[in-house]
């Protein structure tokens, strides 16, 4: 079972409960599951020109993050080091251990009108922002009456 991303938040807990109920009753879930609660947390939005993905992934070395786009499927993978002392180190005590550590991979499918050459990513303040441009032919345009 995955670790809750924002533990002890009453709203998050309610959300999790609701999700589990839904998962239990949903007879045809997405093939990749609902995925909520994984690391990094994702927000996705769209504009007429692009699809914007925000991954909340603090504490990463941007050089080690692998972003792949394969046949419209975007995957974000990497590893987050643990800042905790080794288990055999008797000198330090860990009182709270809530932060995610280890390897992660999140996968999402993008809409069909994405231009694979128009995907850019930047990392700032722990947010990985991926912007995927829609194809020129798919952009909304005004048609003039002849």
């Amino acid at each position: 079972m995955y670790q809750s991303l924002f533990p002890r938040d009453a709203f998050a807990e309610l959300d999790r409960l609701q999700r589990e109920m839904r998962e239990a009753f949903d007879l045809s879930p997405n093939i990749r599951g609902l995925g909520r609660g994984g690391f990094p947390a994702l927000n996705v939005g769209g504009t007429p020109q692009s699809v914007e993905i925000f991954a909340f992934a603090p504490g990463l070395d941007p050089a080690t993050v692998e972003i792949e786009l394969d046949r419209g499927v975007l995957s974000i993978a990497g590893e987050r080091p643990s800042g905790l002392p080794a288990a055999d180190d008797g000198k330090a005590a860990v009182h709270i251990n809530e932060r995610f550590a280890g390897r992660f991979r999140r996968v999402l499918s993008l809409p069909d009108d994405i231009d694979p050459d128009g995907v850019t990513a930047d990392y700032r303040d722990g947010i990985l922002h991926i912007s995927a441009r829609r194809r020129e032919s798919a952009l909304p345009r005004r048609i003039t009456v002849q």
Binding site: P58, G59, G83, K91, A93, R99, D125
Partner: peptide, 20 residues
């Protein structure tokens, strides 16, 4: 989410604040 680690000289606290 936070990690709190204590050693003999003090306490280290790490908190994930993405986007701040």
């Amino acid at each position: 989410p936070v990690d709190v680690i204590e050693d003999s000289a003090g306490i280290t606290l790490r908190a994930d604040l993405p986007g701040v």
